[in-house]
């Protein structure tokens, strides 16, 4: 079995801007702090699977429509 290095990226900023949500509004919706949403958007922090799912659901989208692994 081989392991490959990759990078998790996301479309949170784009989706949030489309819906005109602030970072604080998204943070309250998913139970995180505004600073955590900011860190995730900047890809400085990779969230847990649970928070990643909650973020995708808050946009009414599937997991892979928000998160990409390349």
């Amino acid at each position: 079995m081989t392991t490959r290095k990759g990078k998790v990226s996301n479309r949170i900023r784009e989706l949030r801007t489309l819906r005109r949500w602030s970072q604080g509004e998204l943070a309250d919706a998913v139970g995180a702090t505004r600073q955590t949403i900011n860190a995730i958007e900047q890809e400085k922090y990779a969230p847990s699977l649970e928070l990643a799912f909650r973020i995708a659901r808050s946009f009414d989208l599937g997991f892979e429509e928000v998160w990409q692994f390349s």
């Binding site: 139970g31 995180a32 702090t33 955590t36 860190a39 922090y45 969230p47």
Partner: peptide, 12 residues
């Protein structure tokens, strides 16, 4: 007054 004081990033 904040809805979320601490989250998973704080714990990490």
């Amino acid at each position: 007054g904040k809805a979320v004081g601490k989250d998973e990033r704080d714990l990490m």
